[in-house]
């Protein structure tokens, strides 16, 4: 028998989530205002992996080889994939400006459609739509190891000069990064899956760790909305640190229930 659906508009057990989200939205609007008034006023620290991106694309152009961009195995419900789609647009813009080839084999068909759209847009902005080849972004397989087999084969045959891995990765991370390493490509990775980060750290030249992936698109684009988002996240981190330190101090004074305030159903 089907379980009855919960049709309530509001779940009181998640009021803490509402408060947290409201605070974050407040931080976001404050910083958005700041960013619109003076975009140069919002600072994002240097991310070496992204500084290397230009170098990698330049190297590919000099060598006459393509850049391979892999957007991970997540679908659009994953924040890492949203970041990967945004970064793909920035990478495509640089590739279009420099005039080298781009290959984007995708695992998820919807992600493939979105990246194709973003890439076309980037080529159009660069005034190089004529050099955009249909098939630059292609759906390969939605089965994990079939995708691995296809991409490793592609790496060995096309010999891209730069491999860029961005998004959510799972057990295939080491297979791909190790093969890419053997082909001698510059490898830049960004991943929000803690369990896969060690493999990228070992086998790539540069790695964006966890949240750096989300900051990457803001760093590359320098758009007010994205800069404001990163600054709002930093404010939220300060708040989180204050809450944790306050909770520890409070426990020494006998108040031990702060963790319960943060539990959600």
């Amino acid at each position: 028998m089907d379980e009855a659906l919960d049709v309530r508009w509001f779940d009181p057990n998640r009021i803490n989530l509402l408060v947290g989200l409201s605070l974050f939205i407040l931080f976001l609007f404050v910083n958005l205002r700041r960013a619109r008034r003076a975009p140069s006023g919002l600072y994002i620290r240097t991310l070496p992996a992204l500084q290397a991106l230009d170098e990698a694309i330049g190297r590919a152009t000099e060598m006459g080889r393509p850049v391979l961009y892999l957007p991970g195995l997540g679908d659009m419900s994953e924040v890492g994939t949203l970041a990967a789609v945004t970064i793909s647009s920035r990478v495509a813009r640089r590739v279009a400006d420099m005039g080298c080839g781009l290959l984007v084999p995708c695992y998820d068909p919807v992600v493939a459609v979105l990246i194709d759209s973003a890439t076309r847009e980037a080529y159009t902005q660069a005034g190089r739509l004529d050099s955009y080849r249909s098939g630059t972004v292609q759906y390969v397989a939605a089965a994990q190891f079939a995708y691995v087999a296809a991409v490793t084969g592609l790496m060995l045959r096309e010999r891209p000069a730069a491999n860029v891995y961005m998004g959510s990765w799972y057990a295939e991370s080491l297979f791909l990064a190790e093969t890419g390493n053997e082909t001698g490509a510059i490898q830049i990775a960004g991943c929000d899956q803690v369990t896969q980060l060690p493999f990228f750290v070992c086998s790539c030249d540069y790695t964006l760790l966890g949240e750096e992936l989300y900051a990457a698109s803001a760093y590359l684009g320098r758009e007010p909305v994205q800069l404001a988002t990163i600054t709002a996240q930093d404010w939220a981190k300060i708040l989180a640190a204050i809450v944790v330190v306050a909770a520890v101090v409070a426990t020494f004074f006998g108040y031990t229930d702060i963790d319960k305030l943060l539990k959600t159903s």
Partner: peptide, 20 residues
Amino acid sequence: AVPAYMQAQIFAQLADATKP
């Protein structure tokens, strides 16, 4: 994704970090 991420990745970790 946003509320689910906030619940699973942020609040759950904060709740663990603030345990006595």
